[in-house]
Design a protein around this nucleic acid. Structure first.
Length: 934
RNA sequence: AGACCCGUAGCUCAGCUGGUUAGAGCGCUGUCUUGACAUGGCAGAGGUCGGUGGUUCAAGUCCACUCGGGUCUACCA
């Protein structure tokens, strides 16, 4: 074992993961308490990105930690079927062979999708394994699995029967490219420089005109009124009159509505209820409809019947002049503008910033279109969901996200859940010949339930993927069956996710779960920031700044990285720029850092409530950290080789002051880390761990032990080695949730060193426990030594002594006995660690060459060689003195303030006084040395 | 228009309910290679905390205003 093997993450990570999975290390286990997490289901079409890496690192840390604390811990895994995305992927594949989905027909197409899913749909789950996640693979779920499908149907039917799902004919965001409706959330509003045109509408039976500003002239054929503000004096006389739509020559009423802002544009608005969401509401209020004569007219609300002048391809249809029929919307716009010019109805054209609704998947400009869709009555469902957060049953971390949640929930709109796709959960509705809708699991079920004999036809549409995801916390556990898993693990403990899907997923899950389960889906929601690149830019394909977590784990050559970043670019003109930037940032490609280093980087950056700029520099530092742990393990092996280690002979290691000291550090850190994890402060937790391992264990504990070993008798040697082992075992336990691979391997190797058997998995070993130790005052004792070594080292450096020159140290007889004793016990280590040749005890000598040095508050002397010249260091010492003086002055000023003395708490005042005393002592000691030589 | 977040060392970030001499990692400077680790050791230099004003014995930390960067929601045709 003591043969030196370098730390190579590749050698340990994949094989350990296979072993974990094979031997069912990720099963929740049978324990009294439970802890559960639901993975936010990634798309089957997806590949791993940094956000996944980050969130999954956090979830795995939580799960492993809870497991080690003794909870039955479930991390539910699964993927969602991603309706639109998957359909696009498969359509694109088919297109390569010149096949369209309509060529195939619904059934065949869906078969193709399943083929694709079975072949390529597990890319992301394979990648998740590389991150070391303790996901319960035995119960992996997919939103289109039979059981899940059944849950979705069940939910739909129950909501339908309760009147919370209804069909409505109204405006919807229509994607002409994908030929489907979208929910509000799938619409991106992008600001673009566009134009605004002013069009003149003639007033019927008059020579007057009204000028109307519009950004979408082609919708003019669908106009059903002109509207002005009722308080706008300029236009009040026109209210009730009629206007003529130019080119179309159709008559429309002029109405008054406070919706119109007199200040904007001309103060006159064309109302096109079939193609604009605001106009739709205005139209509804005024009951706009077409009379048989073709003239638009006002009525009561029940009369409202908007006209639609576009079809599903966004081509003009219906109430438009023949020459425009079938014309694509933007072509129609150009043609219409031309005609308006010809008839002098176009009176203005200006630049104008407009917001365009863009489909988040297709990138196409969406069209508000009148269609029949299914809606969820979100307002009703939202009430208990709002309440659950208001009354603290569900907590957001950080808390300020609650505001975002409330803001959306309190203004929630009904949710359009039907999609004109094939891939997904087909809506479980059957229509009879009269168009009556019946909900059921199947045609047979519907017939039976409603006693229908006549023909039935199932709705063609499928449900929004998010509808099925909203059932995730309970449907994955077996609902609607009352399974053990459901009883055990629901409500889940925590949800870890990004703010970008609070509306899409989190809010909807809360609504659905509270409706169906009558309980909350999770108690806490930990909202993570976004992972951005090192400059704070969002990572995106088009920016070419994407980092793949797998590449950070395995490493990648520059050539390969460039290939990946430029492959399949939507805008090929960016290629050159991306190549240059990539070459500049990664001239040698990316090194292999391993999963543990990557994960630790995520933790260290996981400060709450902010996005993370991922700095590649951080990860290399943490690979070094892994290497440090690895070498600490080697060190122990070498000591065993050198001194032998007989565990049975050893005295209890925890009688030795060094081991006790280290153990107490570990206990302190365990408590701190536990606290940090409870607070989701993974950054603080990782910091604590880093400090414990690198500074406490390696820099102090190992170094102190190392030199002590050579002086010790065999019994003490075994005790020291026993302590090194036991303490490192505790440390890797504590670190396991953060760095599962290296810790598992180190633990095994340590057990082998002792020829001991070990539990199959570290995750089952529990957290480090407080050990029984001999009563003593060991802490001040070691703190003295550490303080002492640090002082000597610093002074030596001030005087420019290199390590080879050893000096004598004089600790005067007036110093407390404790100091002598402490140093004596660890004299071998002490002398070695700060370059001391001999320690003696005489009265301080005012004349001989010596430098004053404060050790544990005691003035001592570092004895200097006869030929030592102070000239070289005098100025820097004087500098130091000045700085001390500044600090003294500032404290003195504070203490001179009577208000401070009387109003500040006592401990703050005493603290300042003590500090002043220390500083003054330091100053005097230094002054004395300087005076001696200047 | 409303809401939210950020602005602390060259870089990436901590700094909890106001109270020790404002911290870490990386980078930088000096120095050290016969053994755990140069993927290392030791020591050190760098910030007055975007700006202004206020509250307070005391402010990076609270309040107001302001400048700069970012995000979300709703939008005026």
């Amino acid at each position: 074992m003591s043969k030196k093997s370098p730390y190579l993450p590749k050698d340990i990570e994949e094989s350990l993961y296979h072993e974990w999975e094979e031997k069912r290390a990720f099963a929740p286990g049978d324990k009294p308490g439970t802890f559960s997490l639901m993975i936010p289901p990634p798309n089957v079409t997806g590949t791993l990105h940094m956000g996944h890496g980050f969130q999954n690192a956090i979830m795995d840390c939580l799960i492993r930690f809870k497991k080690m604390q003794g909870f039955a811990s479930l991390w539910q895994v699964g993927t969602d079927h991603a309706g639109i995305a998957t359909e696009m992927v498969v359509e694109r594949l088919l297109a390569k062979d010149g096949i369209s989905k309509t060529d195939l027909g619904r059934e065949k197409f869906i078969e193709k999708v399943w083929d694709w899913k079975n072949q390529s749909g597990n890319t992301i789950t394979q990648q998740l394994r590389r991150l070391g996640g303790s996901l319960d693979w035995e119960h992996e779920r997919f939103t289109c699995d039979e059981d899940y499908e059944h849950a979705v149907q069940h939910a739909f039917i129950e909501l339908f029967d309760a009147g919370l799902i209804y069909q409505g004919y109204r405006l919807v965001n229509w994607d002409p490219k994908l030929q489907t409706s979208l929910s509000d959330l799938e619409v991106l509003n992008e600001e673009k420089v566009g134009k605004i045109w002013t069009i003149s509408y003639a007033i019927e039976d008059s020579n007057d005109c009204l000028q109307v500003a519009t950004t979408r002239p082609e919708t003019l054929f669908g106009d059903m009124a002109l509207a002005v503000n009722p308080n706008d004096d300029r236009y009040s006389s026109y209210i009730g009159q009629k206007a003529i739509i130019p080119v179309a020559n159709r008559s429309i009423p002029i109405i008054a509505d406070t919706y119109v802002d007199s200040e904007f544009g001309t103060g006159v608005v064309k109302i096109t209820p079939g193609h604009d969401f605001n106009d739709y509401e205005v139209g509804q209020r005024h009951g706009l409809h077409l009379k048989e004569s073709g003239e638009a007219s006002i009525g009561d609300e029940s009369k409202f019947l908007p006209i639609s002048i576009m079809d599903k391809d966004a081509c003009l249809q219906g109430e438009v002049p023949d020459k425009f029929k079938g014309m694509e919307r933007f072509v129609a716009r150009e043609n219409l503008l031309e005609e308006l010019r010809t008839c002098s109805a176009l009176v203005g054209e200006d630049d104008h910033n407009i917001k365009l609704p863009i489909g988040d998947r297709s990138n196409e400009i969406l069209e508000p279109l009148l269609t029949k869709q299914w809606y969820v009555d979100a307002k009703s469902l939202a009430k208990p969901a709002i309440q659950a957060v208001k009354n603290g049953e569900i907590k957001f971390v950080p808390k300020n996200w609650e505001k975002t949640y409330f803001q959306w929930m309190e203004n929630i709109q009904d949710w359009c859940i039907s999609r004109q796709l094939w891939w997904g959960h087909r809506i479980p509705i059957w229509f009879d010949d009269d168009g009556n809708a019946f909900a059921g699991n199947s045609e047979e079920h519907v017939r039976e339930k409603y006693g229908i004999k006549g023909p039935l036809k199932q709705d063609e549409d499928v449900l929004d993927t998010w509808f099925s995801s909203s059932l995730w916390t309970f449907a994955t556990l077996g609902w609607p069956k009352e399974t053990d898993r459901l009883a055990l693990f629901h409500p889940t403990s925590t949800l870890v996710t990004g703010f970008d899907i609070i509306f899409f997923w989190v809010a909807r899950m809360i609504m659905m779960t509270m409706y169906f389960m009558k309980e909350i889906p999770f108690k806490e929601i930990f909202i993570t920031g976004l992972i951005r690149d090192e400059n704070g830019q969002k990572m995106s394909k088009s920016k070419g700044n994407i980092l793949d977590p797998i590449d950070l784990i395995d490493g990648i050559s520059l050539e390969e990285l460039i290939r990946k970043r430029t492959f399949g670019l939507m805008q090929p003109q960016l290629e050159e720029k991306i190549i240059t930037a990539t070459q500049k940032q990664f001239p040698n490609g990316i090194d292999s850092y391993g999963t543990d280093a990557l994960r630790f980087t995520f933790y260290s950056l996981a400060a709450p409530g902010r996005d993370i700029n991922f700095d590649i520099g951080r990860i290399s530092g943490f690979k070094n950290f892994c290497n440090k742990i690895w070498n600490a393990m080697h060190f122990i092996g070498f000591q065993i080789d050198k001194y032998g280690y007989e565990k049975d002979l050893a005295m209890n290691p925890f009688e030795h002051p060094l081991n006790i000291w280290m153990h107490e550090q570990i206990v302190k850190s365990t408590n701190a880390i536990t606290q940090h994890i409870e607070n989701y402060r993974f950054d603080l937790a990782s910091n604590e761990l880093y400090e414990l391992i690198w500074s406490k264990y390696c820099d102090w504990y190992i170094e102190l032990t190392k030199n002590q070993l050579s002086q010790a008798n065999h019994l003490e040697q075994s005790a020291l080695i026993g302590g090194l082992i036991a303490n490192l075992e505790d440390i890797v336990k504590l670190a396991h949730p953060f760095m599962p691979f290296i810790t598992e391997q180190v633990f095994r190797n340590l057990k082998k060193l002792q020829s001991e058997s070990f539990p199959d998995f570290l995750v089952d070993s529990g957290m480090p426990q407080q050990r029984e130790i001999a009563k003593n005052n060991i802490n001040p004792f070691l703190d003295d030594i550490i303080d002492c070594i640090a002082s000597v080292r610093a002074t030596r450096n001030d005087l420019n002594f290199d390590n080879k020159i050893t000096l004598d140290l004089n600790i005067p007889p007036t110093a407390p006995k404790r100091l002598f004793n402490s140093i004596n016990i660890l004299k071998a280590s002490f002398n070695k660690m700060c370059g001391i040749a001999d320690i003696y005890s005489k009265d301080l000598d005012k004349h001989s060459k010596a430098m004053n040095i404060l050790i544990a508050g005691e003035k001592c002397q570092l004895v200097l060689p006869e030929n030592f010249s102070f000239d070289d260091v005098l100025s820097s010492l004087k500098n130091k003195l000045e700085k001390i003086q500044e600090k003294i002055s500032s404290i003195e000023k504070k203490l001179a303030n009577e208000d401070f003395i009387s109003k500040a708490p006592k401990n703050v005042v005493t603290n300042q006084q003590e500090q002043l005393q220390e500083l003054v002592q330091e100053k005097e000691s230094l002054e004395e040395s300087i005076k001696k030589y200047s």
